[in-house]
Amino acid sequence: MPLTSITGRSVVSGKAKGKVLFSSEAISFLGGVNPKTGLVVEKGHCLEGKSVKETVLVFPHGKGSTVGSYVLYSLAKNNAAPKAIINRIGDPVVVVGAIIGEIPMLIDVDIDLLNDGMMVEIDADRGIIKLIDA
């Protein structure tokens, strides 16, 4: 039977449904993502040129300056934030950013079970990611 859902630990509650934007690399929001548009601008990053706006953003963990938390806040204010964030490891920069930007977020997720472009439904209150395409 194919996998239909995976679980994680809730950091910010909320529900969301959207397409996975998958990054195998860590993301630095400060300097890495344009806070107005959501475009990834870090040179050589696997998501360079793509937008995090309205995606279910999946990446291992954050990196770089703690000011990155404020970039997530600005993304949310500018309607350019991801619909949800899914991480393998909860890192303080992204966790604080998701809290202040009110972006549903799950950590401790086995992200290798998710693929780029996959449709998923997230219930961050219960820590469940439903794989719609699976």
């Binding site: 400060l30 806070p35 300056s65 000011v67 404020y70 806040y73 600005s74 204010k77 202040i100």
Partner: peptide, 10 residues
Amino acid sequence: KTIGDAPIEF
């Protein structure tokens, strides 16, 4: 110089 506009709104 290092933080830019990011924290201002917050």
